[in-house]
Amino acid sequence: MAKYKIEYLTEESFEYTGVGVFVSFKHSIGIEQHKLAIDNVLINGLEIESTSLEVGAEASVSVNKGLIDYLEIWSYSGEYPTQELADYTLRQSWTNGQGREIIVK
């Protein structure tokens, strides 16, 4: 997934559930050249820390037809804010993952 080009993704919609959020994506022209060799897969093992979250959260990425379809986030505490997180650290935590992080302040 490291080769996947995030600049081809635009957030299309947010569905807040109270315990998390579903983020759907729109794809820009040119993304086809970066399709993944997997289909109908849910990739788990992403952890989120934020000052807006009591304990933290976990995230999964849904891949459909080789393209990222949506991101699902759910809070460990059972409560999630109803707006985008102002600050967060997103970390790979799956077995044999490289532990990469995205930090937004």
Rank of each mutant, 00 (worst) to 15 (best):
K5N: 12
Q98S: 08
Y76R: 12
Y16S: 03
L53R: 00
S93E: 08
H27F: 04
Y8L: 08
G99L: 11
L85Q: 01
E47I: 08
V23M: 13
L67P: 01
H34I: 01
D39T: 06
I6D: 12
N40F: 07
I38E: 14
L36H: 05
S50T: 01
K105L: 07
G99E: 07
W94V: 04
K65D: 10
W94I: 00
E12G: 12
E101V: 02
G20R: 07
H34D: 15
K26A: 15
E32H: 13
D69L: 08
T10F: 05
W74D: 06
V61G: 09
L46W: 05
L67N: 09
Y80P: 11
E101N: 04
E84D: 06
R100F: 14
I6A: 15
T82E: 11
D69F: 08
I38N: 13
L9V: 02
T51I: 04
S52F: 06
L90G: 01
L42A: 10
S50R: 00
Y70T: 11
S50E: 02
G20A: 07
T17Y: 11
E11L: 00
L71W: 05
Y88D: 02
A86K: 11
R91D: 05
S13W: 03
I38V: 15
K105M: 09
E11A: 02
K5G: 10
S62P: 04
S24N: 14
F14L: 13
L71T: 03
I43L: 15
L67W: 03
I31V: 10
I6G: 13
H34N: 15
S13Y: 05
E58M: 07
E49G: 07
V63Q: 06
I48F: 01
S28P: 01
D39I: 01
V55T: 00
G56I: 03
Q98N: 08
K65C: 03
I48K: 04
V21P: 02
A37C: 08
L85T: 02
N44W: 05
T17C: 12
I103R: 14
S24Q: 07
K105G: 06
Y16K: 06
V55P: 00
V63N: 10
G97T: 01
A59H: 00
Y8M: 02
I29K: 15
L53G: 03
G56A: 11
F25E: 09
N44K: 12
S62K: 15
S28H: 10
L71V: 04
Q83C: 09
Q98D: 05
S52M: 12
G30E: 04
T17R: 14
S13L: 08
K105I: 02
I103W: 09
V55C: 04
G18K: 05
E15G: 09
E32K: 15
S77F: 06
L46I: 09
I43A: 15
E11G: 02
M1F: 13
S13E: 10
A57I: 03
I43S: 11
S93I: 11
F14D: 05
S13A: 13
V55L: 12
Y16T: 01
A2T: 04
I102Q: 13
L53H: 03
K26T: 06
K105F: 05
